[in-house]
Structures are given as structure tokens and as C-alpha cells.
């Protein structure tokens, strides 16, 4: 039986009076790739923000590794092993590539560990090494996405949550991003993926949840969902 790493139980999240998540529950098991798919405005980003502490649920509970993390502030979630690659990359544009990567390792104390992680990231993204002294604001969209993912990997994550990593990228780069997701997964990092590109997301995932206006309306094995008529019609453009 697989072990639940992240458990989200019946969370309700509000923006002022607007109820963005209407009581959703899902589980991510250790070692899985799970995706959360759904149309624009369904609540995917809200879900990820709530997991990593940028938002707080009004109702419900989030458990990670058996610990209740519902009220843990965002900056402490990283130290517990969950890292968030935010929507729109949000690299620090006024800082160099190198400084961004150092910030990714902000919670890592051991200097050797940081050096090893930096070497690993440069190995995975040679492009970042070439541009290490460049201001991140001058990178292309694809390079910024690489930086956002590299930055996340600097923190020794056990689980990585990614919000639309392929958004706004050329088809070639989209494939690159999905290859990296598989590489990350092959290093025993659990992945929770949010994507608009449902077809590709389902192809790399073990399981998936479909979110619609703040509710989970379907869940199952990714391969089953990919063949489901309703999913095909609504999300796969078939």
C-alpha cells in the first residue's frame, strides 16, 4: 500500500467573501506524480497557495508527512521539504541567476550541500550556468522557467508543487519542461503538478484530480482519465 505524503482534507478557501475552494480533498502519495487539471479560474493556484502556506483555509486540514501543516507559515513549509514553483515563474528579476539559486537554498545551512545542489542544477540546466551572472529579468521565458525549477531544486525538496510550468512556452520548450518533470520524479521527488496542458500532464502523471469552480469533480488514474469521454471533451480538446 502506498504511503500518503500530502493529505488535503475538505479545505475551504476564501478571497474576502468569494469562496474559491468549496471543500476539496485529495491525497498525494510518496513517489507519485499527481496532477490537478481544470479550466482557468477553477482554483488550482489557490489550492497550491494553500498547501504552501501563502493562503490559509477557513475550514479543513492539510497534513504532510503525518504533521498538521494547516497553520504553518509559508517560510517554514520549505524547511519541511515542500517547495513551490509558482505560476508565472516569479524569479527575482533584479537578482542574478546565481543569486536566485542561492535564495532557493535559503533554508539550507550546509555549504557543501549548497555547492552540490548548485552543481546538480547547473548539470540539469547548462543554460543557467552560462548565464549565472546575468540579471534574471533579462532571461527568456523558457530560461526563467528553468531558473524557477532550478531554484526550487536547491532546497533539497522531498516534494515539489508546480503551477503551470509550461505556460507561455513554445512547443519545443513545453516538451523540455515535461522532460524535466520526469527527471525530477526519477530523483525520488514527489510531484504535484498543475497544468492547463492536460494531455501532457496526464501523460506524465500516475493519478489526477479534475477541479471545476472550487470542487473536485473527478479523480482517478491518469491513464483512465485521459481516456474518459467527459475529460476528453472538456479538457483535452478532443
Amino acid at each position: 500500500m502506498s504511503e500518503a505524503l500530502l493529505q488535503v482534507e475538505n479545505i475551504e478557501v476564501y478571497y474576502g467573501l468569494i469562496k474559491a475552494l468549496k471543500g476539496i480533498s485529495f491525497t498525494v502519495n510518496r513517489g507519485e506524480v499527481v496532477s490537478l487539471i481544470g479550466a482557468n479560474g477553477a482554483g488550482k493556484t489557490t489550492t497550491l497557495h494553500t498547501i504552501t502556506g501563502l493562503l490559509r483555509p477557513k475550514v479543513g486540514k492539510i497534513t504532510y508527512n503525518g504533521q498538521d501543516i494547516t497553520k504553518v507559515p509559508a517560510h517554514k513549509i520549505v524547511t519541511m521539504g515542500v517547495v513551490h514553483v509558482p505560476e508565472g515563474r516569479r524569479v527575482f528579476k533584479d537578482l542574478s541567476v546565481y543569486d536566485n539559486l542561492c535564495l532557493g537554498a535559503y533554508t539550507v545551512q550546509n555549504k557543501e550541500n549548497i555547492a552540490d545542489n548548485l552543481a546538480m542544477v547547473y548539470d540539469l540546466f547548462p543554460r543557467l550556468e552560462e548565464r549565472k551572472n546575468q540579471m534574471s529579468g533579462t532571461l527568456s521565458g523558457g530560461e526563467q522557467q528553468m531558473l524557477a525549477m532550478g531554484r526550487a531544486l536547491m532546497s533539497n525538496p522531498e516534494m515539489i508543487v508546480m503551477d503551470e510550468p509550461s505556460m507561455g512556452l513554445s512547443p519545443l520548450l513545453v516538451n523540455e519542461v515535461f522532460k524535466i518533470i520526469e527527471t525530477v520524479h526519477s530523483r525520488n521527488i514527489t510531484v504535484l503538478l498543475v497544468e492547463q496542458n492536460s494531455k501532457k500532464a496526464l501523460a506524465v502523471s500516475d493519478r489526477a484530480y479534475v477541479l471545476e469552480t472550487g470542487n473536485i469533480i473527478m479523480e482517478g488514474k491518469a491513464s483512465d482519465l485521459a481516456n474518459d469521454e467527459r475529460v476528453k471533451k472538456a479538457y483535452l480538446g478532443a
Binding site: 517560510h75 528579476k93 535564495l103 535559503y106 533554508t107 532546497s155
Partner: peptide, 24 residues
């Protein structure tokens, strides 16, 4: 320095800085 980078990060994007583990 680390604290300096954290300051720049907070000034540019508070939320993203928190996601790096920076205590705002």
C-alpha cells in the same frame, strides 16, 4: 550576503521570497 539577498527578494516579491523560506 544572504540577508541582503533576502531583502532584495522581499522588496521584489514578498510571496515568492516566502516560498524560498525567507521570513518576511
Amino acid at each position: 550576503t544572504k540577508v541582503g539577498r533576502a531583502m532584495v527578494a522581499v522588496s521584489e516579491d514578498r510571496g515568492a521570497a516566502q516560498l524560498m523560506g525567507v521570513n518576511v
